[in-house]
Each structure stands twice: as C-alpha cells, then as structure tokens.
Design a protein around this nucleic acid. Structure first.
Length: 431
RNA sequence: GGAGAGAUGGCUGAGUGGUCGAAAGCGCCCGCCUGCUAAGUGGGUAAGGAUUUUCAUCCUUCCCGGGUUCGAAUCCCGGUCUCUCCGCCA
C-alpha cells in the first residue's frame, strides 16, 4: 500500500499513476472516507481522554477515602463509556472502509515507465543472441520429449489431472540438473544467500504480499489447516522479515530460493497450455532483495542482469522488455519481463519478471530498517525476479538443442549435473 | 496427540488492579573526563496514529481477539506461537 500522507497531499499523482496502470482506483472516495475517519477518530480520542482523566481522579478519591465522591464520579463515566462504544463502532467501520479502498490503489509507476495498455506498448530494452537457424524446422518440445521419453503427459494426468508434469528418466534428471545449476550459479557466483522455505504458508503471508484478498481462488488451500501452497517463493521471502527491523548493515540483502510453485490457473485452460507451457506445479529459482530506498533502482538493474546471465550461459536467445504502465503488476513501480525464443512455436515466451516494489510491500508487511541508532525506522524497498522459472526454459532448451537426427545435445553448463553430454533415442527409455 | 511452562521496548529481563508506556542491564545517541580504537562519568533513547498548541497536546499498543472493572501488562474466556517432558514418526 501507499503512504497515506502521499495520497492525502498528492492525490493527483496517485490518480495519474493508477491511470498509467489502467487501474480504476477509488482515490476520491478514499480521501473522503479518510477525512470522515479522522474526524471520528478525533472525537473518539477526546472522549477517551476524558474517561482516562475521570479514572485517574477516581483512583485518587479512593486513596483519599472519599466514598461519596467516588460514587458520583463513577456515575459520570457510564455515559462516557456508552458514547465511546458508539463512536468506536463508527470509527472501526470507517477505518475498514479506508483499508478496503486503499487496497484498490496501485503503486505508482516510475516516470520513465512507458505509457500504454497492451503488449505492443512494451519497450524492448535489450536483445541477446540470435534466433536459431530460421530455415530449419524445429520440433515442439512435447514431440521431442515424447520421442526421448523425457516426460509422460498421459500418466501425469492420470495421477493429477491436467496441468501437471511427470518427468521420467533423463528427463527428470534434466529438470533437476537445470534447477541445481541455476541455484548454484546465483548463490555461488552472484552473491545470493540461499533460502529454502516451506511450501505452505499462512493466509497472512499472502495478504502481506498483496496476493490476497485480491486473487482469492488463484491458490491451493489445505482443507483443515488454513494453509496455502505458495504460488511463488516471493511469498515466504517477503514475509521472512515481516514486522521486523532489519539491521542497516545487513542491507542490501540478497536471497535466492529454489522452490516449487503452485497455481490453480483457473480460467487459463486452452490457450498456450500445451506441454510444459502452463503448469499447476513448477519449480523456480527466485531472486529477492531487501534494499535501502536509495539503492533499489540500481539493484533492480543488477537483479535483471543476474537473471539474464543464466540464459547467456545456456546460449538461449532472449529479449528483455520494459513493461508499459498498463501491463505492469499492481504493486510495483518498474517491471522487466525476460522472454525467450521458442524456435518451434516461433514466438517469445515469458520466463522471468523482475520488479521493484518500492516500499509498497514493505509497508504492508511492516518491514523496516534504521539508518543508525538515533533515527526512526523507515520502510525498506523490496525487489524480486525469477531466475528463472523452469518448465518453459526446459521446453526451449529441448527445442533449441535437439538436432535434426533427434539427439538432444546438453548445453555445456548442465553436463556436469547430467553426467552425459547428449540424450538420443537409444539411450534410455522408460518402459 | 497428551501434560506442563511461557510470550513485556532494538536485545536480555523485572513487574499480579491505579502514580506503569513499563525497573534494571545491554546496545545505540549526545556530552564530560582521560595523552593514545579501553575504562570512567552525566544525560537521552519504544512504536503507530490524530491534532494547523508540531523541540507541543492527546489517543492506541506489554502475542492476538473478546470479557470483568470507573481503571488491566496484571484478573477471566478463546486463539496463535515458543519451550520442556511423554507418545508417535521420515
């Protein structure tokens, strides 16, 4: 959420920000409700103050043994109390309304974020590598996988229904190799500290990241315990330091986690869901940073490069987009999407999203730091990005590195994890 | 799963109905002193919120939510979490 004083003092800025994101934000309504709320609060506090004075006075009268006066004073408090109850109820309702409205006001995009409402308004920030030989015909990853027995879609759906993967044999090893490689790379050479969180979290954590109540129904939930399966490790990583004051010398804090992610993807069936393109469960290395406010812009660029460099090591052609206002998420101030080229489907696939959230999430989850012993706590800035999501990368690797004779040549960085340098028809087949 | 103990400020930890937003220590900040990154010494130091009294006034907060009371860190009820013991288990 935004700083309330910012909304009060700069409503136009907030409204323009929402417009840029193509969000209909109830800024005016918020301002009115906030005004009412504060007026009520003022009234409430005045009466409470009166009651507090009365109570103190009664205490003194008792110690002086003035019984008669005590009874009189007590009688006076009755009226005050009932008044307090009434106004309290009013104030609580107004406050709830303020919060409800507040949750509908998005974070403000940075000035350099381009205007626009659709994909075509995104700016290409960077291209790396080339599309592989366009004259050749590339097999789609599900065909490659079928011929090499890398995963088994029919049995996957027998077990779990649609939208799940069942990797087998070297296909399973390849998925493991890829995740090991990526988490090793980020933690050993890019300076991230590894975190392995639980995959199930309390409801409060999803509220902290802004996923709930807005996206109710997008997540898997346990029946008896009110726990949710994480849609991304951003959730536990953001909440790790909820309600804490992080020592200033620990910032910038860089965390990386390899976890599974679980998404219901309700309503997404049909389009772009073949093979590994959209799964209810997938693995992902998440990169996460807590920074001081003045550092977050710079750290976002670094984080983006950390994600991109994985693709460079694997030799996959990609482009990085600076998203326009209308395509951005609700909570961020700047967002890059990294897209990799699928030579078989002949299109770019989104594989990472790197965002700077400013203090928006930190305010909501109450994550702060202190510049030094004497100063007040301030909200940190949070950033995150995938580094990277596995299945689509897996898919593009299969398409890109399968030769015309059907042999899949394993990219060099994965070879030590695989123990083999290629997978061909004869090598290993699941019965 | 059963039994017991506990949850207090950045940290440790006192506090069982009013003068407690809360002792003491640590840490931190500002002085003083000391001839040398130490010791001593004086003072300050919770967070959030409201108020055009803003080096001020007031409100809320001692895990969370209810309750008793004129008044709750303190008493009662419910919940969450932590620890110890037992049981179970990879």
């Amino acid at each position: 959420m935004l700083d309330r004083n910012l909304i009060r003092n700069n409503p136009n800025l907030v409204m323009q920000g929402a417009e840029k994101k193509r969000v209909n934000a109830p800024v005016k309504e918020w301002i009115e409700t906030d005004r009412d709320y504060r007026a009520t609060l003022k009234e409430l506090e005045a009466i409470r103050s009166e009651l507090n004075d009365q109570s103190k006075a009664i205490g003194q009268l008792i110690s002086q043994g003035k019984k008669k006066e005590v009874e009189q004073a007590k009688a006076l408090t009755k009226e005050l109390k009932s008044k307090i109850n009434d106004i309290e109820e009013e104030a609580r309702a107004l406050e709830q309304k303020v919060i409800e409205l507040e949750l509908q006001i998005p974070n403000i995009p940075q000035e350099s974020v381009p205007e626009g409402s659709s994909e075509s308004d995104n700016q290409i920030l960077k291209r790396w590598g080339e599309k592989p030989d366009p004259s050749r015909l590339y097999k789609c990853h599900w065909d490659v996988a079928a011929s090499l027995s890398l995963f088994d879609q029919e049995r996957a759906s027998k077990i779990s229904g649609s939208g799940f993967a069942l990797y087998t044999g070297l296909g399973a090893r390849l998925q493991r190799a890829l995740s090991q490689f990526m988490i090793d790379y980020q933690t050993r050479t890019r300076g991230y500290q590894e975190v392995y969180p639980s995959f199930m979290v309390r409801r409060q954590c999803l509220v902290g990241t802004g996923s709930l109540p807005k996206f109710e129904g997008d997540f898997y939930q346990t029946k008896d315990d009110d726990l949710y399966l994480i849609p991304t490790s951003e959730v536990p990583l953001t909440n790790m330091y909820a309600d804490e004051i992080i020592p200033s010398e620990k910032l910038t804090m860089k965390l990386a986690a390899l976890t599974s992610c679980f998404r219901r993807e309700a309503g997404a069936a049909g389009k772009d869901t073949r093979g590994l393109l959209r799964l209810h469960q997938f693995d992902k290395v998440e990169l996460f940073k807590y920074t001081k406010p003045e550092k977050s812009d710079e750290e976002l660029e670094l984080l983006r490069v950390d994600a991109e460099s994985v693709l460079e090591l694997l030799g996959i052609h990609y482009r990085t987009m600076l998203l326009c206002g209308g395509e951005m998420g609700f909570s961020n101030i700047r967002q890059y999407d990294i897209e990799i080229w699928s030579p078989a489907m002949e299109k770019y696939l989104e594989i990472s999203s790197c965002s700077n959230f400013g203090s928006f999430q930190a305010r909501r989850a109450n994550i702060r730091f202190r510049r030094d012993g004497a100063s007040k706590p301030e909200f940190v800035h949070t950033l995150n990005g995938s580094g990277l999501a596995l299945p689509r990368l897996y898919a593009v690797l299969l398409e890109t590195y399968t030769k015309e004779d059907g042999t899949f040549v394993i990219p060099e960085p994965l070879q030590e994890y695989m123990g083999v340098d290629s997978i061909s028809l004869s090598k290993e087949c699941l019965v």
